[in-house]
Simulated assay, not measured.
Amino acid sequence: MAVFVCARCDAVLTAPVSEVALPAHAHHSFGHDMLPPLMEPGTYAVDPEPHGPPWKPWSEIGEDEAAARGVFARARRFHSLPCGASGAVAVAPGDTRAMVLIPERCDGYCLGLDGRDGPNLACARCGRPVATRVDDCSLWQVVWLAPDAVRRLPVEGPADRILDWETLAQERRSTPPVEQLGYWNPQWEAAVGVALAHVLVASGGAPLAVPGGLLADTFGRALDALLPKGPPAKRLALAGPGLPGTDADIVLVPLHPQTGQAWQPRPPSVGVPLAAGVWMHLAFPQEQVPPIPVTGGLPDGFLRDDPLPLRPQWLFRADARVLLGTLARLPAVREPWLRGIFDRVDGQGYARPF
């Protein structure tokens, strides 16, 4: 366990928190509603990429500078690059302590704060800007601690226990793909967008065979649209703890929810990391269990239809911004065949090719 304190005056700025992997949807926006917190209570995650302002327009950035910042392609919908410090720390808003808003930095797009002006929270003791609260509509609610304004201090408390893969497979903590009213879970749209970029790279531009079911619904349609037509040259499958072995060329493997490390497949399969909650549901689909009376049981042949199983209202689409943002940070995007896919997705706008 740890707390974060002000680097100037040592005021404690958070409740005790444990480190977990940064969620795939950390910088994903969705709809025009108020979204829940990005982080679970009592947790924090570190963003390894540059984060937040100052923002540098693409017109001032050449290919060499962009590559030095880890960006190898420019999407037309991305107008600038974040040039803030890397290592920002994400915590749930409810886990913050001893911070006050900076009124002149509390701008937003619609219903809340979007962090466009930089740190908007100051240490209540010394007044130093230390964090940025984000809670506008379409954005996951989070407080980003500025890495140069805070320090991490260990505290007494329960030791962080890193669960092994076998335990995680037994617990099967999955993220449901469909929400109420038939909306696809936006966490799935972001997680599949990240993994889809890596699957494209691993494919080498060759057609892929994808098993039927939910895997085909979430990955198969996009791959069919983006890769060339023809007999599949490679196969995509799931691999990981609790599953039988596979000799598929490309395998989707889980990311450890605490460490962020990917489960390692057996060679020669190429592993593509996928958010653990999404992977768990694909690997171990959760069957809907009909309600059972507290006493007695259901008569033979009787099946309740309340509540009805959740079904999506439309076909699944991975988030295009997440897909493009992930591809842009992979050096392979400079290869002509993959850059062609990048430009196709970028040019379609909301009419995505999948």
Rank of each mutant, 00 (worst) to 15 (best):
G94F: 06
A67M: 12
P154H: 06
W279C: 02
A318H: 05
D164Y: 08
A122W: 01
P103E: 04
F78K: 11
R116A: 14
V134Q: 02
P82L: 01
V289G: 10
L13N: 02
W165K: 03
A68V: 08
R8T: 13
P154E: 10
T175N: 08
P232Q: 00
S138M: 02
P299A: 14
D117N: 15
A225D: 04
P177W: 01
P336K: 01
G115H: 07
L327F: 11
R304K: 11
R151A: 09
P103K: 03
S80V: 09
V46F: 12
A88W: 11
R329N: 13
V3G: 00
P177H: 03
T96A: 06
P293F: 06
P82N: 00
I162K: 10
A233H: 05
G204D: 03
G260A: 07
P244F: 02
D247W: 04
Q258S: 05
T132W: 03
M39K: 01
P54T: 08
V100A: 09
A67N: 14
V272N: 02
A275Q: 11
A262R: 03
K229Y: 10
E166V: 14
A146K: 04
P285L: 04
L227M: 08
N185W: 01
A21V: 13
D346H: 09
D10M: 10
V12I: 12
A159V: 12
P265C: 06
W337Q: 06
L315K: 14
A275D: 13
G31Y: 13
L35I: 00
R339D: 09
V322L: 08
V5H: 03
K56G: 07
A332L: 09
G87F: 05
Y350Q: 10
M39Q: 05
A328S: 12
T295E: 11
P211R: 00
A90S: 10
N120V: 11
V322G: 11
V194Y: 08
V142K: 00
R266P: 14
F78T: 14
P267F: 02
